[in-house]
Design a protein around this nucleic acid. Structure first.
Lengths: 148, 148
DNA sequence: GTATATTTGCAACTCGCTTGCAAAAAACTT
DNA sequence: AAGTTTTTTGCAAGCGAGTTGCAAATATAC
């Protein structure tokens, strides 16, 4: 716990435990570390990013993957695939549903707190982005699969 | 060439050659086979789908990947990632820009020839889809990377 | 505090995709 | 149309993000 700001650290710790309990996940060191990291810093982070930020050798990469998948499963965490084959993770705040833009060259990521394609693209152009493309996919359960 | 419908086959063949030439790609059997397949059948197809449809042992999987990447590079073909880690490919008709919905259970894919999120989701609900999610990402070149 | 259930670390493995290289096929030249 | 150059292909090995089986360690239940 930080000596400079013990209250904030404590609050995060308590919130993390509360979140894990609500998700029916037992309270373990790796889960607490990973979730509090995602709660404190705004991603989206790759697994590599996350491991780098975790205390040295504090847990195995397999554990990080397993925890993240459980978090996604229970909607604590959201995933994005901004680069092929590399999953990114961020704390899932349903109040602030958003999308991202990644620079094709420097890979800098920005969040977009709006959800209308044309409007977003206009805004991006004003911010100096060029050669803008978007990827939009839908996922759902179809009528056949819904039937009893 | 089909005995039943030689004209149509010939037209596809000519169109494929024209497209390859325009893309500055030399005319080879694998490239012709793959591109004409994508021209005839509407995807999006996985590489496995494509190999299954290609004449038996007509070319190596590495060649399929290489050709598809070249096609994407020259905008002849468009990619989508409807399932994690599996790329899908379809002929890129810029006149008919569209998105897809995949059933989370049976993986059936439908095309959506419209591009406004809310409108699309309303339409999907009417078609019986449940538990609809979408994934929307933007890609572009940021102001810093544009500067000389 | 002990028993039971869950999670972790480790190492081996999976799988979509890529790559190095020699042989084969296109494209270019005259 | 044959010879030369360039590009492409097939093969097999390799890559890397992510997963998994299993025994040991840790959390939870009693």
């Amino acid at each position: 716990m930080s000596i400079l700001n013990p209250k904030k650290e404590l609050l995060t710790e308590l919130k993390v435990i509360e979140l894990l309990k609500r998700a029916n996940l037992s309270i373990t060191a790796p889960r607490k570390n990973i979730l509090s990291l995602l709660l404190k810093e705004h991603g989206p982070f790759t697994v590599e990013d996350i491991i780098r930020r975790l205390p040295k050798n504090s847990c195995d990469q397999a554990t990080v993957y397993r925890c993240l998948n459980q978090f996604v499963e229970s909607s604590l965490v959201a995933t994005t695939f901004l680069e092929k084959d590399i999953a990114r993770f961020e704390f899932n705040d349903p109040e602030h549903h958003h999308h991202h833009i990644i620079c094709k060259i420097c890979k800098k990521i920005e969040s977009l707190h709006d959800c209308l394609i044309d409007k977003i693209e206009q805004g991006l152009k004003k911010k100096g982005y060029q050669d803008i493309e978007h990827r939009l996919e839908f996922f759902g359960i179809c009528a056949q699969c819904t039937k009893p």
